[in-house]
Computed example of a mutant assay.
Amino acid sequence: MDKYFKGKRILVTGGCQGIGEGLVIELWKHGANVVTISNQPENLKKLKQQYPSIEVAAVDLRNWEQTREIVDSLGVFDGLVNNAGVAIIEPFMEATPSSFDETISVNVKAILNVSQIVAKKMIENKIKGAIVNVSSQASKAALKDHVVYCASKGAVDSMTQVMALELGPHGIRVNTVNPTVIMTAMGRKVWSEQSKREEMISKIPLRRFGEVHEVVNAIMFLLSDGASMISGVKLPIDGGFLAT
């Protein structure tokens, strides 16, 4: 895997914080030509200052046409990671149309949009590429106050399977990773309440939350030729949460 990424062009959405940032840096360390897009221009600027060879572009993934224009302008890629996402936490009885629309727009429609553009160019250039969509254990298990988020991640898993079916004949593999709670800055904040934290950890056989590098390692594998016969898979990174 060390040599696989050298010179490969990889696009990562939402790559300037959390899992996305960890992935972008790891790909860069392995010699990939990394491009990341995000709606956080200040964080993109900081990333660019630290890693000048990483290409960045600011885009609001909720804007279908702007996204298509910018992604198309970025050229041809060997791999794509759809990492950008939002999590609006609301009980079922309080979930709003605006929360639903926002979540689906970023977590689902943006994956469709970006992937269409990237896959089209892979096919035109006869690139046997790989796409990894970042889903969640929430696609497979009910989480309290996560009704809209769970729905969006279920859609991601289903869309991934169809992508794998239709893009497979072109040599393009499509998979998801489905993490549990990951200790990003946001994760530490959301799960800082002791009772809430302990309740979730009690459902994880390994009795801990995940770390960013543990998700990054799985994505790197699925992007690489080490996973050359793996497509349409939903890979839990959950310490056994879904096994219980």
Rank of each mutant, 00 (worst) to 15 (best):
H30E: 15
G31D: 11
G31N: 13
A32Y: 00
A32L: 04
N33C: 13
V35H: 10
V35M: 08
V35A: 06
V35W: 04
T36D: 01
T36I: 00
I37Y: 04
S38Y: 02
N39A: 15
N39Y: 13
N39R: 15
Q40E: 13
Q40I: 09
Q40H: 12
P41Y: 12
N43V: 06
N43M: 14
K45Y: 12
K46H: 09
K46S: 08
L47F: 02
K48Q: 15
K48N: 13
Q49L: 13
Q49D: 13
Q49W: 10
Q49H: 09
Q50K: 14
Q50I: 08
Q50Y: 11
Y51G: 08
Y51W: 12
Y51L: 13
P52G: 06
P52A: 08
P52F: 13
S53N: 15
I54E: 00
I54R: 00
V56C: 00
V56W: 00
V56K: 00
A58S: 14
A58V: 12
V59F: 05
V59H: 03
V59K: 04
V59D: 03
D60L: 06
L61G: 03
R62F: 05
N63E: 14
N63K: 14
W64Y: 14
W64N: 09
E65A: 14
E65M: 11
T67K: 09
T67Y: 13
R68A: 14
R68C: 15
E69V: 11
E69S: 14
I70M: 07
I70Q: 03
I70P: 02
V71Q: 02
D72E: 15
S73F: 10
S73A: 15
S73D: 11
L74W: 00
L74C: 00
L74K: 00
L74E: 00
G75V: 06
G75R: 09
V76D: 07
V76Q: 07
V76R: 04
G79M: 03
G79T: 06
L80K: 02
L80G: 01
N82E: 01
N83G: 04
G85T: 07
G85V: 07
V86C: 08
V86F: 07
A87N: 12
A87H: 11
I89Q: 07
I89L: 09
E90S: 15
P91S: 08
P91V: 02
P91E: 02
F92P: 03
F92K: 06
F92C: 09
F92S: 11
M93V: 11
M93E: 09
M93W: 11
E94Y: 11
A95M: 05
A95P: 02
T96M: 01
P97V: 10
P97E: 12
P97Q: 14
D101E: 06
D101K: 07
D101V: 03
E102N: 10
E102I: 10
T103R: 01
I104G: 02
I104C: 04
I104A: 05
